[in-house]
Amino acid sequence: MSAQAVRRGLLALLAKEPMYGARLRSEFEQATGGTWPLNVGQVYTTLNRLERDGLVVGGGGADDEGRILYAITEAGHAEVDHWWSSPIDHASDPRDELAIKIALAVTLPGVNATGLLQAQRRSTLSHLQGLNRLKRRASSEGDQAWQLVLDRLLFAAEAEVRWVDHVDALLSVHPLPAARKESR
C-alpha cells in the first residue's frame, strides 16, 4: 500500500478523536481486517509528516509514559473530507506491467500475442479460483472484513480477464497489427 494511503487512513481515524500513536496503529489494523499491518516506525514517520504539513498537532509534549497525543487540525479535517468525496485517481498509477507487456506484444514483430493472452487468462483464472476458495472459507468463518478485501481482489482479477478477452477479440477482428507495422 502506498504511503499516501497510510497517511490518509491515519488522518481519517484521527478525525474521530485524538489518539496516541500505538492506539492509532491498532485501530488502523482493526479497521482494515488485520490485512495491513503497520510497523511503529511507519506510524510515527507518517504522524511527523502530517504534523509538518499542519494536518495534525502533537498535543503538549510527551506524557509520563513518553506518549504524545495527536489531534487533527482544521486543515486535516478538510483533507479528510476531500478524500471521502474524491474517487481514487487510477491515472496516478500508470505503471501497469501487464498493459505494457501486451501493448508491446501486439506491436513488436515475432511475439505470439494470442499465446501470451491465453497464458495470462489461464493464470488469472487460477488466481480467481484461489481467491474464490479463500472467500468461501472467510464466509464460513464469518470474517467479513477479509471477505470484503477478497471481493476487491476478485473484481480486480475479473477485470483483468475481461480486458484480456477484449484484447483477444480485437486481435481476431484486426489480426496482426505487428505485420501491419512491419509493412509500413
Partner: peptide, 25 residues
C-alpha cells in the same frame, strides 16, 4: 485450453499491500 491446478494465494503483508495498491507498493 484448460485451467491448471488451483493454488490458493498466500498473502504476505507485502504481496497483499502491492495487490491492493494496484501493483505500486
Amino acid at each position: 485450453d484448460e485451467s491448471g491446478d488451483v493454488v490458493e494465494p498466500v498473502f504476505t503483508d507485502q504481496v497483499l499491500a502491492a495487490e491492493l495498491a494496484g501493483g505500486d507498493d
